[in-house]
Design a binder for these strands. Structure first.
Lengths: 234, 234, 234, 234
DNA sequence: CATGAATGAGGCTTCATTCAT
DNA sequence: TATGAATGAAGCCTCATTCAT
């Protein structure tokens, strides 16, 4: 939690500082990120950072909180009940994610880099909990769909929830591995993560959805009935 | 590549050294791992390490190679053609992986930690390539299944390959996130990663396979139509 | 270039540090010089050096720059056009050099040791360029004298320039080889390089000048012909 | 002085070892040269070197002695009395030096690199003495010429001797600074120092001789007499 | 509230030399 | 006589954090 010293800062300065650190943590992992470097860029005293935050971790957690809050604003309004099935809802999440990315490039980069950041032992505990929460959220979604008879009931919710979470992550990773997006490069050029790549992102989302439907949706056997009644009736 | 000095070492000593470093790299990431610490544990001179290996990276790559080689011995004999479908083949891979884990706990821990290790910038390039190769291998498997008419043709091989790769990873991760396994703790107690957890691992594999079937397998319903109805009714 | 941290240091401290390093580099070559040793002498933390300078090379270049600047102040005001011939100008350079030596013993020692320092591979490139510039400066001087009809035109400027440069160096070296001066010892006793040796230095300079006149000056015999004989006889 | 162990070695092996170390010391300075590296190249045990020589210095001095001996064989037969003046003798020294270079490239490279090697503190004492001897030899030559009435008597022999020595050195250095020769490169290509550069070397020698004549030769004033008798007779 | 110099542990790496076999 | 593994001091450099001003 930042100290009052930081919160009382003139907004301009507070944002300047926040952005500089976001940029650093968007490019390097927690352990690699160097306060020294950022402080030099900012032209502020090293000691100041310790007037604002308890330590490196405190600062880092603040940044996570801020970015999560901003992204949440984009996503919170998307309600499952406004969509006919889970997958159109799922797709919408990515669409809004794109909007968030375009309007908050630095925050988007920061969160993006976060995903590949689960190791640094200094923060392992914290990350584990964060991930647990995220996974739990997906489990809950799955639970709802199962209850509604839309997702298959024959696989534990835990497993489906985790795979669903992983599918979300995979979409980003695949784009990165195949070179469709290049965060390291785009942040260098002051571009957002998905700048000019919205189409390919959504296309990939659709491909994954096609696969996921087969995996998660309740088997349409009854409808198959309607298709091949002959064999059955005979 | 280790220097002859290392290879000529008395086997007992060579193994003692290898194991000590495996242990370190199984617990810490490449950049965090400290040669100094291990050397102190071993009670050997720091300089000795540099008689054995060119540098830290050389040592690390040797460990990767050794572990991969050992694991390969367990897996290489599993041939796709010996199994009726991809998924029984897939399952067998995990079964043998379990055996490898039980019989080579340290190597298994090392490889396990490797997965969560993609960041260390000193070795990012090397890791990226390793992962690319792994992903490519999965793509190739998918390609084969598609050719054989067993996997669906309406989703790009690249996407299916990547998801398949991710499913493999997810199984391990889910067990870790849910607390079913706890590598950090088990290595402390000189236990293998999956010690006493073989059942739950395979059960989870089966769950994922059930999901994956729906996602990847060619939907047989329509084709069943053309092939049999007539014959059935007659 | 030193970091602001160093420049903002209290002058007393800054000088103390500068002098300690000057002393080290005046006695040892770049590669042999040990920051660790100096830091211990100074009683400051090793890390401090890296708050002041980027690295060892940065520190070294700073020292070169400082000493060169100081020496330049002594020499810059000497203009060729104020002297009837090159050699009286040349002699004056050494006289002022002596003054610089007396008033800045440590800097003088440092620069003196620099000359014998062309090897250290870490800085070979930098040194090669420095020497090239110095040689070029001598070439230019020679060129001017040739243009003015004062130096002989029948030997390439390159060769004369290089020899002239070497003569300057030789004067110092001869005194050292013959034991007239002993930098290693004099720095130990906090004496300047040429302390109490000004006379012998200038005497040696004069000897070299006498030799150099024969080598470089245009032979006046023929020209004496056209100018005077007639006028003299009349 | 090498130990008997070395001298008793089969000649082929002894030469192989000698050459490998010559090569190393021809490329690196004494302090930079690494026994470890050479021993690896040779494929012999590190300990062997210490069976052959007391230590690094002992080995180095042996190499100096060997090379000096070989070069001496080329030069010793050149007698001053066989030449009309010092400078034709001087020129011959370089010609034979060229022959030595062509027929013993490695030794030539080694000796060449030696010149730029006066710093390494580990061997400073030894080098100082070597140089003193060389300088003394030149002094003696100068002394003889002065006695013979061929060199000017109005400048101390010490100074003329030293400059003469320096001129010899300068010739080599100038060729290197101007890029006419490139030892570092030529040794890489298994070429001798002056391979294909004999002409430019001798040409440079001639230029230096032209300068040196003016500097060292007794003033020819009397001969000027014969040129401008008019003014004198009137 | 800001400053920024000081800290010092810890990191990897190199090398000549020794000594038991 | 040859081997080659072991040594360990010394080197440069990084970084989060502290604290006096």
């Amino acid at each position: 939690m930042p100290k009052p010293t930081f919160l009382n800062l003139e907004e301009r300065k507070r944002k300047r500082i926040t952005y500089a650190f976001l940029r650093e943590f968007a490019v390097r992992s927690y352990d690699e990120a160097s306060l020294t470097v950022v402080v030099k860029q900012l032209g502020i005293a090293k000691g100041s950072v310790y007037q604002y935050f308890d330590d490196k971790l405190d600062l880092f957690l603040y940044l996570i909180g801020e970015c999560a809050r901003v992204k949440q604003d984009y996503i919170a309004s998307i309600k499952r009940e406004d969509y006919p099935d889970y997958w159109s809802y799922f797709r919408e999440l990515f669409k809004r994610g794109c909007q968030f990315d375009a309007e908050n490039p630095l925050q988007s980069h920061f969160l993006h880099n976060l995903t590949q950041n689960l190791n640094s032992p200094s923060i392992k505990n914290i990350f584990d909990e964060m991930m647990s929460q995220t996974v739990a959220a997906f489990e809950q979604m799955v639970e709802q769909e199962v209850q509604a008879g839309l997702f298959r009931p024959d696989v534990p919710v835990k497993t489906m929830g985790f795979l669903l979470y992983k599918i979300g992550v995979s979409i980003q990773e695949q784009l990165e591995v195949t070179g469709a997006i290049n965060p390291a490069e785009s942040i260098e050029n002051n571009q957002s993560v998905y700048q000019g790549k919205k189409e390919i992102l959504l296309q990939t989302v659709d491909e994954y959805i096609r696969l996921a439907r087969g995996a998660f949706d309740r088997n349409e056997a009854p409808s198959a009935f309607g298709i091949s009644p002959v064999g059955e009736t005979s």
